[in-house]
Amino acid sequence: MKKTAFLLLLIFLGSVLLQLVLPWWSVVPLCLALAAWRGPTGGQAFLAGLLGVGLSWWLPAAWLNTHGANLLAARVATLLPLAGQPWLLVLLSGVLAGLAGGLAALSGALLRRAAEPRNALPAA
């Protein structure tokens, strides 16, 4: 559990910093690399990526929505089938970003597992 919390913290801080200067998809290679480097099991890596990227996306979006950007969010939510609810747009965008991060972290953990040397199989 300690490894998962450390990976979550690394992904959260890295994605916050990367999203300041790079496009949104820059969190995908970050999650893949961090999970391949420090990755626990696949499920734990997915959870760390999901929460790390999801929170790094959702917290600023929620803050902006409460501090004046809700008009734009309401207009975008009107274009999508969200009944003009800006909070649904904030929630949906956080979930989608979290899924991208979670799947990238899962891929990194599986890549690490595939690259590990296997024990020699006994001769039959």
Rank of each mutant, 00 (worst) to 15 (best):
residue 44 Q to S: 14
residue 30 L to E: 04
residue 55 L to E: 06
residue 6 F to Y: 12
residue 41 T to F: 11
residue 48 A to M: 13
residue 29 P to F: 03
residue 45 A to P: 07
residue 35 A to R: 08
residue 52 G to D: 05
residue 48 A to V: 03
residue 5 A to D: 10
residue 39 G to I: 00
residue 38 R to S: 08
residue 3 K to W: 01
residue 45 A to L: 10
residue 12 F to Q: 06
residue 35 A to P: 02
residue 39 G to S: 07
residue 10 L to N: 06
residue 31 C to Q: 12
residue 47 L to P: 01
residue 9 L to A: 15
residue 6 F to D: 03
residue 15 S to R: 07
residue 46 F to C: 04
residue 47 L to W: 12
residue 39 G to E: 04
residue 32 L to M: 11
residue 4 T to A: 12
residue 52 G to T: 08
residue 47 L to N: 06
residue 27 V to N: 05
residue 40 P to Y: 06
residue 34 L to Y: 02
residue 21 V to P: 06
residue 16 V to D: 03
residue 47 L to D: 05
residue 21 V to D: 09
residue 35 A to G: 08
residue 42 G to F: 05
residue 32 L to K: 03
residue 31 C to R: 05
residue 26 S to L: 09
residue 10 L to K: 08
residue 34 L to R: 03
residue 35 A to M: 09
residue 6 F to I: 08
residue 18 L to I: 07
residue 11 I to A: 00
residue 54 G to P: 08
residue 36 A to N: 02
residue 20 L to K: 15
residue 15 S to K: 09
residue 50 L to G: 00
residue 19 Q to L: 01
residue 51 L to G: 02
residue 40 P to V: 03
residue 9 L to Q: 04
residue 44 Q to M: 10
residue 38 R to H: 12
residue 22 L to D: 05
residue 45 A to C: 13
residue 9 L to F: 12
residue 28 V to Q: 02
residue 27 V to P: 01
residue 41 T to Q: 14
residue 47 L to F: 08
residue 3 K to R: 14
residue 45 A to N: 05
residue 25 W to Y: 15
residue 27 V to G: 03
residue 41 T to V: 04
residue 20 L to C: 14
residue 24 W to T: 06
residue 21 V to R: 13
residue 7 L to M: 06
residue 43 G to D: 13
residue 6 F to S: 10
residue 5 A to Y: 11
residue 33 A to T: 14
residue 9 L to C: 11
residue 54 G to A: 12
residue 30 L to P: 01
residue 49 G to P: 02
residue 23 P to V: 04
residue 12 F to N: 00
residue 7 L to V: 02
residue 41 T to N: 15
residue 38 R to C: 12
residue 29 P to W: 02
residue 24 W to E: 09
residue 3 K to H: 13
residue 5 A to P: 02
residue 50 L to I: 00
residue 36 A to L: 11
residue 16 V to L: 14
residue 16 V to T: 09
residue 41 T to E: 14
residue 29 P to R: 12
residue 5 A to V: 13
residue 10 L to T: 00
residue 13 L to N: 01
residue 54 G to D: 07
residue 9 L to D: 01
residue 40 P to H: 06
residue 8 L to Y: 10
residue 19 Q to D: 08
residue 49 G to L: 10
residue 3 K to L: 07
residue 24 W to D: 08
residue 24 W to V: 02
residue 6 F to M: 14
residue 37 W to I: 14
residue 14 G to P: 05
residue 12 F to D: 01
residue 30 L to A: 09
residue 35 A to S: 15
residue 34 L to E: 01
residue 9 L to N: 09
residue 5 A to L: 15
residue 52 G to H: 04
residue 51 L to T: 07
residue 46 F to P: 03
residue 12 F to M: 11
residue 41 T to L: 13
residue 51 L to N: 04
residue 44 Q to C: 06
residue 20 L to D: 06
residue 34 L to I: 07
residue 14 G to Y: 05
residue 53 V to A: 05
residue 38 R to A: 12
